[in-house]
Amino acid sequence: MADDTAPQIDFNEHERTYVNFLRGSVAVILGSLIVLVALVMFAFGSGASATVLGFLGLIFGLAAVVLDLRMGSNWTLSLVVTAIFVFITLMWVA
């Protein structure tokens, strides 16, 4: 019989994986929200300028999410860009 051959649990690696999973989940949620707001702008905005604003908001919003994800920050840039995009969409559609 083999004695003491069970692998040891690496709690530091487990915690790092958990933190990265949470960061990825937040990035997917913010990206989905930005895509949803862009779809609202495309569907209910009037004119070609709504389409341009929708694409710009989509590009800048997803770029902000990628930057926050890569920098490991606290999502401030993504939240600010998303809030501005939501506000512009609400003003444009209303």
Score class of each variant (00 low, 15 high):
Gly45Gln: 07
Asp68Ala: 02
Asn20Trp: 05
Val80Gln: 05
Thr89Ala: 15
Thr89Ser: 15
Arg16Thr: 03
Thr76Leu: 15
Ser25Gly: 12
Asp10Gln: 00
Gly24Val: 06
Thr51Glu: 07
Leu69Tyr: 14
Ala48Asp: 09
Val93Gly: 09
Phe55Tyr: 13
Leu69Glu: 04
Gly57Asp: 03
Ser32Met: 10
Ile9Met: 09
Ala38His: 07
Leu67Asp: 09
Ile34Pro: 01
Gln8Phe: 00
Met1Val: 00
Met91Trp: 13
Leu90Lys: 11
Met41Trp: 00
Val19Lys: 13
Leu67Gly: 02
Phe85Lys: 08
Tyr18Ile: 02
Pro7Trp: 08
Leu30Cys: 05
Ser25Cys: 04
Phe42Pro: 02
Leu56Cys: 08
Glu15Tyr: 13
Ser25Leu: 14
Gly54Trp: 04
Arg23Val: 06
Ser73Pro: 02
Leu33Glu: 01
Trp75Asp: 08
Asn12Asp: 12
Gly61Tyr: 06
Thr17Lys: 02
Ile59Arg: 02
Ile84Met: 13
Ile84Lys: 07
Ala27Gln: 04
Val66Ala: 14
Val81Gln: 06
Met71Ala: 10
Val28His: 09
Thr5Ser: 00
Thr82Ile: 05
Val65Ser: 05
Leu53Pro: 01
Leu58Tyr: 12
Ala94Ser: 14
Phe85Pro: 04
Val35Lys: 01
Ile29Pro: 00
Val66Asp: 05
Val35His: 08
Ile9Asp: 00
Ser73Trp: 13
Phe21Pro: 00
Met1Thr: 01
Met71His: 07
Met41Arg: 15
Ala64Ser: 15
Thr76Ser: 05
Val66Thr: 09
